[in-house]
Design a protein around this nucleic acid. Structure first.
Length: 293
DNA sequence: CCGCGGGCCTGAGAGC
DNA sequence: TGCTCTCAGGCCCGCG
């Protein structure tokens, strides 16, 4: 499911239920998600107070009082929902994708407040792992990640430098988590559209020969900032699986300009182009050939 | 080192 | 209705 705005939406939804609360018991309902659970996974969570809930790229990180960090990734289809104590008696009251089908509820955190936090993931591309906070810097899953797109370090100069020696397309470069961490297929398509840049353009064209950022790099950074901030404000995009932790839908999908709009009219003012789709590195790219150059 | 394609899973939707 | 096929928001790994 989830790109940065969806993960951030989930983080904000989980925060009130997790921060300051204790995980009385962690329940794991199968032996693996994408990877097998660590042998001591539940033992390291049981009885732990959650100090804070953060996000790095598409990862959620729960800081525990023990000094461990619980690392969580939603994969393609992972979702969390928070069931308040009052609602646990009446499960029909909250909405959830496939709300009748609890088959894919793989992990439950039973919290000291009486709330249950349930992780559901049909495709099981998601995963969870407990690591020592002191080992965060060596964690292979996080090690290669580029800058946060909404962080201070990410600007046109940095993006240009990261792309300067790339031999690949702009689309592929923005999907590369080493270049910038947190974008996925939807928001890359949308950002390129807003910047009026072709997904086929070479990534290296964002930099001059002296590795200085071009105006295109500046447009693109502005477009990335705008689309992510707007999407977060909208609670993310709900296509198939993404829900907020309350069960509510995000609504940024109504603001898509190109994603999933193949054959429809370009929404750029004054442009009469048609949105097209093609495959790049095995993924669908949506764009307007008329106003993205 | 880099870039690409395959594979991991299940479910939804299209077409027959 | 039901089968088969394609596709899906991510990321690791092995290959050239």
């Amino acid at each position: 499911m989830p790109e940065l705005p969806e993960v951030e939406t989930v983080r904000r939804g989980l925060q009130p239920a997790m921060e300051g609360a204790k995980i009385v018991k962690a329940e794991v309902r199968r032996k693996d998600l994408r990877f097998p659970f660590q042998k001591d996974f539940t033992a390291r969570l049981d009885g732990q107070t959650v100090i804070g809930l953060g996000r790095r790229a598409k990862y959620l990180l729960a800081d525990l009082a023990s000094g461990d960090v619980l690392l969580m990734h939603l994969g393609m289809s992972g979702s969390f929902r928070v069931i308040e104590q009052d609602d646990r008696q009446a499960p029909g009251r909250f909405h959830h994708p496939r709300s009748e089908d609890r088959t894919h509820d793989h992990v439950v955190f039973h919290m000291s407040s009486g709330a249950a936090i349930v992780f559901n993931d049909p495709r099981r591309f998601g995963y969870m792992k407990v690591i020592a906070r002191t080992a965060l810097g060596d964690e292979p899953l996080l090690k290669g990640l580029g800058p946060e797109p909404l962080g201070n370090e990410f600007d046109a100069a940095m993006l240009a430098r990261a792309c300067a020696n790339k031999k690949t397309s702009l689309k592929a470069a923005l999907l590369d988590q080493r270049v910038v961490a947190g974008l996925g297929n939807i928001y890359v398509c949308e950002a390129l559209f807003r910047a009026h840049l072709s997904p086929r353009r070479l990534a290296a064209t964002l930099a001059t020969k002296k590795d200085e950022p071009t105006d295109h790099a500046r447009w693109l950074v502005a477009a990335i900032h705008a689309v992510l901030n707007e999407a977060i404000k909208a609670g993310g995009s709900s296509l198939r699986d993404h829900r907020q932790t309350s069960g509510e839908l995000g609504y940024f999908q109504h603001s898509f300009q190109v994603y999933d709009r193949e054959g429809e009219k370009c929404r750029s003012p004054g442009c009469d182009g048609i949105v097209r789709r093609f495959t790049q590195n095995g993924r669908s790219t949506f764009w307007c050939p008329k106003c993205q150059k």
